[in-house]
């Protein structure tokens, strides 16, 4: 029973963690992309389309990643090259993505999808309980864990990561030091898009192997909130994503057990829990300020 619940939690948390990690990198470079939902749904529809066309969900995963990255380029071009307002452009990206994906996916509605199958890791998967929980998962779950570790290392242990954080904190100074602000931000935006695309692929290939319009159901927005929740730190994103997933699934079980708590209250619980943790985290204003990219959302025009 516990194992079954935890497996459901993992499936629910994985797309949030992945999309959130991508946005974290984008924001660390000083760009606020509110288009996560749009990029995610594009990833979901393209991943599903590619899987149906080729019969291979792995090609679907690749297609989802590429779709998210390409779609985010549109955002990059508008906000970085044309210096359009990031908030407005991000919102537009979400609306465009939701509409466009519906158009692309029209013929896929009602088609049974192909599920990305789990890969059992030899030896490790034989450990009782933990094995079947963590080492008998699909590729996207393994990628999500690798991303947490990789991004943490990149941001806080690598030279390029340091440069990127410098851009996010003060793009004028970084520019004066000779760092290519625009190029780095383009890469960060595309990485965010690729992650959102991967999260979308998880939805249409693992979570519910099918395509329906608006199937992201607001998960892109939750991913955005998780970045703030995690105060821009990857390991906290992991914790936050799993907390949110656990409360979401937990409330469904509480309902099925019939313990008599109103379901509206239970449905609001994940969000309430997020707010509580947010208050606790932001209690110490200094640590919050240290982690918040100071140039977040500000336009950058190189002066010379």
């Amino acid at each position: 029973m516990l194992e079954a619940i935890l497996l459901t939690v993992i499936t629910a948390a994985t797309p949030l963690v992945i999309a959130s990690l991508g946005e974290l990198v984008t924001e660390r470079s000083g760009v606020l992309n509110l288009g996560v939902e749009g990029m995610m749904i594009m990833g979901a529809v393209i991943a599903f389309a590619a899987t149906q066309a080729t019969g291979s969900p792995y090609l679907g995963v690749v297609a989802g990643i590429v779709a998210g990255a390409v779609f985010s380029l549109l955002f990059g071009f508008l906000t970085l090259t044309l210096v359009a307002n990031q908030v407005a452009t991000g919102l537009a990206l979400t609306i465009l993505g939701l509409g466009l994906s519906g158009q692309i996916g029209e013929s896929f509605v009602g088609q049974p999808g192909i599920k990305l199958q789990p890969i059992a890791i030899p030896l490790l998967s034989d450990i009782p309980f933990v094995g079947s929980l963590l080492f008998r998962q699909d590729l996207i779950f393994y990628l999500s864990i690798a991303l947490v570790v990789g991004i943490h290392w990149f941001l806080f242990r690598s030279r390029t990561g340091l440069k990127m954080r410098a851009i996010g904190d003060n793009h004028a100074s970084a520019h004066a030091l000779g760092i290519n602000v625009i190029r780095t931000r383009y890469l960060a935006v595309m990485f965010g898009g690729a992650c959102a695309g991967l999260a979308g692929a998880q939805l249409s290939l693992v979570y519910t192997p099918q395509w329906v319009e608006n199937m992201t159901g607001g998960r892109g927005w939750i991913a955005l909130a998780l970045v703030v929740f995690a105060s821009w730190r990857p390991i906290r994103v992991l914790a936050g994503g799993y907390l949110f997933g656990a409360v979401t699934i937990g409330q469904l079980h509480a309902q099925a057990l019939g313990i008599g708590i109103p379901s509206q209250f239970l449905s609001a619980l994940p969000y309430a829990a997020t707010i509580v943790v947010l208050i606790i985290i932001s209690h110490n204003r200094r640590t919050t300020l240290i982690n918040t990219p100071a140039s977040l959302g500000k336009p950058f025009v190189p002066e010379r």
């Binding site: 459901t8 979570y207 099918q210 199937m215 159901g217 699934i249 469904l252 079980h253 057990l257 509206q264």
Partner: peptide, 23 residues
């Protein structure tokens, strides 16, 4: 009975279904 509090969200509906089957 599990209330998903949505008409249309495949993920949530699947989670609700799994919770019911697990019980």
């Amino acid at each position: 009975v599990v209330w998903a509090n949505t008409w249309f969200d495949p993920g949530k509906e699947a989670d609700a279904a799994k919770a019911l089957v697990d019980q």
